[in-house]
């Protein structure tokens, strides 16, 4: 079985994960084969679904738990992490 990695991130950009950041997130996530699951509270969605990410209503300051599973999972997590920490090039 593949190794699962989970890491938590704080959303830093002012408007949270609205459409544009969600699109960027999915664009990055879709480049990897690994399965990517994003959780906020009880909500659990695929990191490769725009509609899914938008339903998280991840505003500034909220915490996202991202779990990756697959060979390139670690790399995916690093890139997605950089995106979140880089405020999705917003603000």
């Amino acid at each position: 079985m593949e190794e699962m990695i989970t890491r938590e991130f704080e959303i830093l950009n002012q408007y949270g994960i609205h459409a544009r950041p969600a699109a960027l997130f999915v664009k990055t996530a879709s480049r990897f084969d690994a399965e990517i699951i994003v959780e906020k509270g009880d909500n659990r969605v695929s990191g490769k679904s725009i509609m899914g990410l938008m339903t998280l209503e991840a505003s500034k300051g909220s915490m996202l738990k991202i779990t990756v599973e697959g060979e390139d999972g670690e790399e995916a997590l690093a890139e997605i992490g950089a995106l979140i920490e880089g405020k999705f090039d917003e603000d």
Binding site: Y15, G16, H18, A19, R20, M54, E57, A58, S59, K60
Partner: peptide
């Protein structure tokens, strides 16, 4: 539609 949904989401998040 895309923009309206986005505006609505930003509104909810704030």
């Amino acid at each position: 539609a895309a923009k309206e949904l986005d505006d609505r989401l930003i509104d909810v998040m704030s």
